[in-house]
Design a protein around this nucleic acid. Structure first.
Lengths: 213, 213
DNA sequence: TAGATTGTTAATCGATTAACAATC
DNA sequence: TAGATTGTTAATCGATTAACAATC
C-alpha cells in the first residue's frame, strides 16, 4: 500500500471531526466547507484541509465536503466499520462502568467477557456477560476472537497481566492502570491515566490563579 | 511573578515524571541523573533537562537531581500541595466509580458531594457522601468551597449544567461527557473523552494490520 | 583537581498556518 | 463563465534534540 505514516497529532483529531460530522449529519446538513467547519470547531480551516488530505481528497473545489461521505470515510479510517470484540479485566467499579457503557457497542466494540481475580465477583453479571476467573483468560481470548483487552485493575497486577496478554492474539490494550506497560511490538497500548488528567487540571487551576495575581 | 507561559506539552509530561520519581523515592533512591531517568522513562535526557528548566533549575551539575526534592517540587507545580474539593455531577456507573476511587484523596482531591437529577438515586451513598438533587448544586458549591466539578452525565445535559457551573465559583470542570463545553474564561476544562481514546486505539490496530500487508 | 552532569544556547525536526494555483 | 473552495506548496512557528560551556 505504501502509505506515508500519519502523525498521531492528526489521528487524535479524527474522533472530534467524526463527532461534529455526525451531529451535522443528524441535523440534515448536506455539505460543509472547511471554513464553516473551522468556525464550528474552533480550529483553522487550513488544519482541517491538511488533516483530510493526509488520506486523499475528500472534498470538491468550489463545493466543500459532503457531510455523510466525509463522516463515513473518517469512520472507516478509524476502523469503526469493523467489529472489535473486547474483554474487560478488572470487574471493580470502573470496569463495570465501562462494561455498562452502551455507546461503545454502537461503534462496533462488543463486550464479550469480563474477568477478575476476586472470587467474590466471579459469576456476577454485567449486561449479558458474567465475570470469569483469571485462569480462563487465555482460552477465552482464543475462542472468542478477542482483539482488545481493557485493563481496569490496580497497577500492581497490571504489568503481569499485560505480559500474559502479550502472549495472546490480542491486538491492543486499553490501559486504565496507572503504570506503563511493556508489550510486544504490534500490540497497541492506549493509556487513560485519569490521575494524570486530574493533575493537569490542578496545574491549570493554579496557573490561572497565579496569573491573576 | 512575570513567568513565561509553560507549554501544555510540558505540563502533560509532569504527572509521568511525578509518578516515576514517586516510585524511585519509595525504592529509597536518593539521586538520579537525567540520563538514568531518560533510560528508565524512554525519553531523551535533553527533554528531561529542558522540561525541568522551565521551572528553574532543580539539579546540581556533576550530581544530578535529588529525587525527593524533585518529587516535591513537581508536586507543588502541579498544585498537589493544596486541597481541592470536588463534586461529582452524575451518579451513574462512571460517577460512582470515580467517587469510589480512593487515590484522588491521597493527592488532595476531596469528594464533597454528588448530584443527580434521577430521583431514584437521591440519597444513595458513595463513600461518605450521599447523592443530592440538582437543585442544590449552586448552594452546595458556595457553602462547601468547591473548586472542581466532575461531569459524568450524558452529553445532552452536560452543556446546560456547564453553563450553570460557569456562573458559580467553580475553577475547573473535569468533563467526561462527550461534548465540548462552553465556559467563561478562567474556568479550566479538562476533557476525558473515552470514546475518542477508544477510536484512536481502533485506528492504531488497523494501521498496524495494514502495514504488515 | 578531574569527572560528571547540569543549565542553556544552537540546530533540527515536525506541525501548524498562510497563500495561491488548480478546478469544480 | 465567475465565484467558491479545495488540494498543495511555501512560510512560520513551536517543540525536540544535540552540543557544550558552566560549575558542582
Amino acid at each position: 500500500m505504501e502509505e506515508k505514516e500519519i502523525s498521531q497529532a492528526v489521528i487524535s483529531r479524527l474522533p472530534r471531526y467524526f463527532r461534529y460530522l455526525g451531529e451535522l449529519k443528524d441535523r440534515g446538513v448536506e455539505r460543509i466547507s472547511s471554513q464553516d467547519l473551522s468556525r464550528l470547531m474552533h480550529v483553522t480551516a487550513s488544519q482541517i484541509r491538511q488533516d483530510f488530505n493526509n488520506f486523499g481528497g475528500f472534498g470538491q473545489q468550489g463545493y466543500g465536503y459532503n457531510v455523510t461521505y466525509l463522516y463515513d470515510e473518517i469512520g472507516k479510517i478509524l476502523g469503526l466499520d469493523r467489529q472489535h470484540n473486547f474483554v474487560i479485566i478488572g470487574a471493580g467499579n470502573l470496569g463495570r462502568a465501562l462494561g455498562n457503557y452502551m455507546n461503545f457497542e454502537r461503534r462496533g466494540f462488543i463486550l464479550k467477557g469480563m474477568f477478575d481475580r476476586d472470587p467474590e465477583l466471579i459469576g456476577r453479571r454485567v449486561r449479558d456477560v458474567s465475570v470469569m476467573p483469571m485462569e480462563e483468560l487465555e482460552s477465552f481470548i482464543r475462542e472468542n476472537d478477542i482483539d482488545i483487552a481493557v485493563l481496569t485493575i490496580p497497577k500492581e497486577g497490571a504489568v503481569s497481566v499485560a505480559e500474559r496478554l502479550g502472549k495472546t492474539q490480542i491486538r491492543a490494550i486499553w490501559n486504565f492502570a496507572h503504570v506503563d506497560l511493556n508489550v510486544p511490538e504490534g500490540v497497541q497500548v492506549e493509556n487513560v491515566h485519569l490521575s494524570d488528567s486530574l493533575m493537569k487540571l490542578s496545574y491549570n487551576i493554579n496557573r490561572y490563579r497565579n496569573e491573576q495575581m
